[in-house]
């Protein structure tokens, strides 16, 4: 072989813009940022709670601010994206073989969604809906 093989470099920071599949992947990965920030909000809440009733009232007031509502709306959407993307890949990550056959993917995914509904209802019940 004469001459030299040509190597196409991938753009290190913008590669994921090139294909809808990669954009979907990045949308899934960045869900970690709102989930991380939300967990920090929870810890902040614990701190205000430990400081007594007045501090807690302040925290609740902050939760009612437009900025907080906007953040929680965005975080909610991202959290749901995370949930859907997580559940939808469960059949290929953990196959369940019963006898010869594998449990159908729809059954495994369906079981996760059912569990999600049950868990959410329990939390809502505890919160007092």
């Amino acid at each position: 072989m004469s001459g030299k093989a040509y190597i196409r470099e991938m753009p290190k920071t913008t590669w994921w813009l090139s294909h809808s599949r990669y954009r979907r992947y990045v949308a899934r990965e960045v869900t970690c940022i709102p989930i991380g920030i939300y967990t920090a909000v929870l810890i902040w809440g614990l701190m205000r709670l430990s400081q007594g009733a007045a501090a807690w009232e302040g925290f609740i007031e902050a939760l009612n601010s437009p900025l907080s509502i906007l953040f929680h709306l965005v975080a909610f959407v991202f959290a749901v994206v995370h949930t859907i993307s997580w559940f939808n890949v469960t059949p290929s990550a953990m196959r369940v073989q019963i006898g010869e056959d594998f449990a159908p993917g729809a059954v495994i995914i369906g079981a996760h969604y059912t569990g999600w509904v049950v868990v959410s209802l329990i939390v809502l019940f505890m919160a007092g809906v």
């Binding site: 059949p91 290929s92 953990m94």
Partner: peptide, 9 residues
């Protein structure tokens, strides 16, 4: 992809 996740576990 599934094979790799199973091997990760």
């Amino acid at each position: 992809a599934g094979a790799i996740q199973q091997m990760k576990i």
